[in-house]
Amino acid sequence: MSKIIFIDRPQEKLDEIQSLIEIVYEGFMALAIDYGYHVNNVFGQSKDGKHEIYELRDNINYRIRSANLHFYLLITRKLEIENRFAKMLKDKPTVFNGYFMGNPYFEMASDEIMAIYDSIVFHLSSCFDYLAMLTQFVFGENQQTKLQWITLVKHCHNNKSEFAKRKFAENIKKVNSEFVSKFNDYRAELIHRKKSTSFANLTWEINSGKVTTQFKCSEKIKSNLKKIIDRDLEYCISYASFELIKQTLLKISDVLNGMNDEFRENYNEHSPKMNIGGFQIISMNPETKFAESPSLEYWKKFMEYKNFC
Score class of each variant (00 low, 15 high):
I282H: 03
R187C: 06
K210R: 14
K222E: 09
N201P: 00
I206F: 10
D261A: 07
N275A: 10
I229L: 15
E205W: 08
I221Y: 04
N224M: 03
D254S: 14
D230S: 13
E243P: 00
K216M: 13
R193P: 00
R193V: 05
R264K: 15
V211R: 05
D232S: 15
I276C: 01
N257H: 11
R193H: 12
I191D: 01
L190S: 03
G209P: 11
L225F: 08
N266P: 02
E269H: 10
Y186I: 01
K226V: 11
D232V: 04
N275V: 07
T212M: 08
Y267E: 06
I282L: 09
N275M: 13
F242Q: 03
I237C: 07
I276F: 08
H192F: 09
L256Y: 10
A188K: 15
F279K: 08
N268R: 13
S198R: 02
E243L: 13
C217E: 00
R264G: 06
D232I: 06
N257G: 00
E189Y: 06
I206Q: 15
R231A: 14
C236S: 15
I191R: 07
D261Q: 12
Q214E: 10
Q280C: 13
K246I: 00
K246M: 03
S208K: 08
S241Q: 00
F199R: 11
S208G: 12
R231G: 08
K210W: 00
D261I: 06
S253V: 10
I252Y: 07
V211L: 10
N285H: 11
S218N: 05
I245W: 02
L244T: 09
Y186N: 04
E243V: 07
F290Q: 15
H192P: 08
K227G: 02
L249S: 06
A200K: 02
A188D: 14
D261N: 14
D230K: 14
E262R: 09
G209Q: 02
E189R: 10
P272W: 12
Q280H: 05
F290G: 00
I281V: 14
N224W: 03
L233W: 04
L202Y: 04
T288F: 13
